[in-house]
Write a protein that binds this DNA or RNA. Structure first.
Length: 648
RNA sequence: UGGCCCAUCGUCUAAUGGCAGGACAACGGUUUCUGGUACCGUCGGUCAAGGUUCGAAUCCUUGUGGGCCAGCCA
């Protein structure tokens, strides 16, 4: 079909549009190159017949463009300048450019496609297909299940847009495939919520505390500020304080380990915002579990320290009779491995069964008066808000005391917990010493493991050269011998020239114009290899030879020569350019010395740092002088003068 | 196997060929009625080997590792 005439194709396309053909019968393709190394360029399909119901045109319109056709056209029509997409479309850019060049007349109007790496997160997957499977198979409750990495899930969990943007800023944009640590997300969320979440007290896993010297019916009240002193914000609330309280189970230890700063038998701690209590008696059940603490209250210690009593910590608490029962949903990473995509076997084998944990606790009653979308910090626990789907029933204060009020809080993110970190670290250290290493997954880096058999690399390369030489044709072999023997080029250089004809042509032309063979080879191989063969490459051997002459003869610095390169590639004459722009090398010691002095004088801080031992700054000074002279100063001279000036 | 892309502290990311810097994490300290916050400090990196250059994370070559492409999907 590639040979069919334009007229015939146009007619066929018109009939395609009229709906004469069914799906699969005909297709419109771009005639590019069926042998193109990039598969996307092998005559890509542009239009096909689709038998589908469109939400606006119904089944009237029968043909639809492929992505590769629609993308460049819609960009051009909409006046897009930079079209951004993810890395997997890199190969498609060739088709994009091919179409744009043919369809958009001027370079100024031509849009360009740029690719960037997709954001991937540790311990989760972000591919829509895989997330869909989690939804379909009921691993999660839906796309907005707070365990999911979707925007709707983050929103439901309580993460603010500002936190997500800040996270995105911290991650940045690059072309390297990477996988971001969840800690980066967590810290962005905490930074955001720290200044906007009022503090309240909630006990997630309650342990009963009875204050022996507070009467059963006695109703005390403390006034507590919503904000700590270091966070701007005003307002207070009343917190009921009664004989019956609860504290966090983890805030009491029968036998406190070293470093444990909380409540234990005989110890005293402060009830946050209230008085200090002392644990006098521990009540256990038949199985030996701690079920209740009987404590003495230092009732005069609100706002002051009781004399002669060591206060170990300040603990959050809630009145058992006045507090509101609630459910807390605690979220952990969705998967048990850092990279579930890369793990062997079925994805679902790595789902973390504890990604959602529900606990039932008590919260201070003040929250009943707040807007339902208030985000709180539960002191010493984390940031929470009421789940927008299951936890937003209007709260009736009258009935709030009654159990069964649907008060459901999501943990948005936990607070940093130095104590938990410490105990976890010690725990795993103990484990490691017992178990064989590697049981705790090797969190090691992606590429530190060296491939097996890299030892005898030098040898391998040696024999590799021999093997490559074997494969050369007779003509190539002759050329290789000529370059190594007659021209005196190193083996690797000779080999590259031998196998890359375009480079060899330029090299030959340059040498023919009188350039030294090693200089010519260095320039061609090191500085020009990336440009030779590109569109608009107009550098001749003559021009290169005269450039080399200028450098080797000491007329210009190599730095200036390299800066001239873009002009030379476009066909400019080096000698004329140097004359026109006044780029001759600056050898006048007095003039350079003045420049050095000026630069040193202009950077007193750097000078002090250098003299303080930051010797790398010498390069900074050299660079500044080179810049000041437009790259013209003889770098060796600059180097020695800078050294003199810095040591002076 | 071919073509294209990528490689910098444990993680993410900067650095017109001229100071390898920042954030997170970790570790230590100060402050604290949150083992939070804030502040100070410490540790730690250019995948490897060659080459070009006065000077290379940056340019060249080769190697290694990773990603993408062979749908009438996007």
């Amino acid at each position: 079909y590639r040979g069919r005439s334009v007229e015939e194709n146009l007619d066929l396309f018109a009939r395609m549009k009229e709906g004469e053909f069914g799906p699969g019968e005909v297709v419109l393709r771009a005639k590019i190159d069926m042998a193109h190394p990039n598969m996307k360029m092998r005559d890509p399909i542009l239009y096909r017949v689709v038998d589908a119901e469109h939400y606006r045109t119904g089944s009237e319109w029968p043909i639809y463009p492929m992505y590769d056709f629609a993308h460049p056209l819609s960009d051009a029509i909409e006046g897009i300048t930079h079209s951004l997409c993810t890395l997997e479309f890199e190969n498609n850019r060739a088709v994009y450019d091919w179409l744009i060049e043919r369809l958009v007349p001027t370079a100024e109007e031509q849009p360009h496609q740029y690719e960037f790496a997709r954001l991937q997160l540790d311990y989760t997957v972000v591919s829509k297909r895989k997330l869909l499977r989690l939804v379909r198979e009921g691993v999660v409750t839906g796309w907005d299940d707070p365990r999911m990495p979707t925007i709707s899930a983050l929103r439901r969990r309580g993460v603010t847009p500002e936190a997500i943007r800040e996270f995105a800023n911290r991650v940045g944009v690059a072309k390297a495939n990477s996988r971001t640590d969840l800690a980066l997300l967590d810290s962005a969320i905490r930074d955001d919520l720290n200044t906007r979440a009022p503090r309240v007290m909630a006990v997630l896993e309650p342990l009963r505390v009875t204050l022996t010297n507070v009467e059963p019916g006695e109703h005390l009240e403390v006034t507590a500020p919503y904000w700590p002193p270091d966070v701007p914000g005003e307002g207070v609330r009343a917190v009921p304080l009664t004989r019956d309280l609860v504290i966090e189970r983890s805030d009491f230890e029968l036998e406190p380990p070293a470093g444990f700063k909380r409540l234990a038998p005989g110890r005293a701690v402060r009830l946050r915002h209230a008085f200090v209590i002392r644990c006098d008696e521990v009540v256990t059940d038949d199985a030996g579990n701690v079920v209740e603490l009987k404590c003495h209250a230092y009732r005069d210690s609100v706002g002051e320290s009781p004399a002669g009593v060591k206060v170990w910590a300040a603990l959050h608490w809630v009145s058992e009779s006045a507090g509101l029962p609630f459910t807390a949903r605690l979220y952990e990473p969705l998967f048990t491995v850092r990279d579930p995509d890369g793990a062997e076997g079925d994805l679902l084998d790595y789902v973390n069964p504890d990604a959602l944990r529900e606990v039932h606790g008590l919260i201070e009653p003040s929250v009943a008066q707040d807007a339902p979308d208030t985000r709180y910090q539960f002191e010493r626990q984390g940031y929470f808000w009421r789940d927008p789907v299951d936890g937003r029933e209007p709260l009736d204060l009258e009935s709030a005391g009654a159990r069964g009020v649907p008060l459901v809080f999501n943990r948005i993110v936990g607070l940093k917990d130095a104590w938990a970190r410490k105990t976890a670290a010690e725990g795993s250290a103990r484990q490691d010493s017992v178990s064989t290493d590697g049981l705790r997954k090797g969190a090691g880096s992606k590429r530190t493991e060296l491939p097996a058999g890299t030892e005898p690399r030098a040898q391998a390369e040696q024999s590799n050269l021999g093997a490559v030489l074997e494969q050369l044709t007779a003509a190539q072999r002759a050329r290789y011998d000529e370059l190594t023997a007659a021209h005196g080029l190193p083996e690797t250089d000779a080999l590259t020239l031998t196998t890359r004809v375009a480079l060899d042509d330029l090299y030959t032309a340059t040498v023919a114009e009188g350039a030294a063979s090693t200089s010519a080879a260095n320039w061609v191989l090191n500085d020009l290899a990336g440009y030779v063969g590109q569109e608009g490459f107009a550098l001749t051997g003559q021009s290169l030879a005269s450039l080399i002459g200028l450098v080797d003869g000491g007329s210009i610095t190599s730095r200036v020569a390299k800066e001239l390169l873009p002009d030379l590639l476009a066909g400019a004459d080096p000698v004329a350019l140097v004359k026109e722009r006044g780029l001759e090398r600056l050898d006048d010691e007095q003039a350079v010395r003045e420049q050095v002095a000026a630069v040193v004088a202009a950077h007193p801080d750097e000078l002090a740092a250098y003299r303080g031992g930051k010797s790398g700054l010498r390069g900074f000074f050299v660079g500044q002088v080179m810049r000041a002279t437009g790259g013209r100063a003889d770098p060796k001279l600059v180097q020695s003068l800078v050294e003199q000036a810095l040591e002076a």
